[in-house]
Amino acid sequence: MDNKNIIGIADMKMAQTTGTLITYALGSCIGICLYDQRIKLGALIHIMLPLNMETGRTGTMKYADTAIRETLRQMEAKGGSKARITAKIAGGAKMFEIVGSNSIGNIGQRNIESVRMMLKREGITLLKEDVGGTIARTLLFDVATGSACVRCHGRPDLIL
């Protein structure tokens, strides 16, 4: 796949000016596109859990809070400005509905809430989102334009 950068689970990649960042099969996980329009600097993060409570706070990109903070830091190091950076997010679904057990279903919802809260705390505007529901999503992020596309099974592509 030319010019496409694949982001795995608990991972982040950046690109500038051209290129498509892609992350596959977001279930309860969330894909977060951060974009500085002025310098066409984009980052795509694939987080799995809402809050980093690991001792030593390793696994930075696994958790919404540490991943967003660290990515913003790296974007600023490349000339990005938090005042200009905006966000688009997708994911946070509930893949299985289990009777009498909430913790599986709650992970997606807790991820959504944590991502929204972290973005707000960092002063980042959340432009668009496609979250919740029961379907898996693949997220493509074009850093030339800042446009994002959500691909699902059995649903037309959605442009964010």
Binding site: M95, I98, A136
Partner: peptide, 21 residues
């Protein structure tokens, strides 16, 4: 054992369920 739950979707997202837990 809980009652079984069922889905048809991308297998990456299905495998991610035990991982996220």
């Amino acid at each position: 054992l809980s009652v079984p739950a069922f889905t048809v979707d991308m297998q990456g997202a299905i495998m991610a369920v035990p991982m996220a837990l």
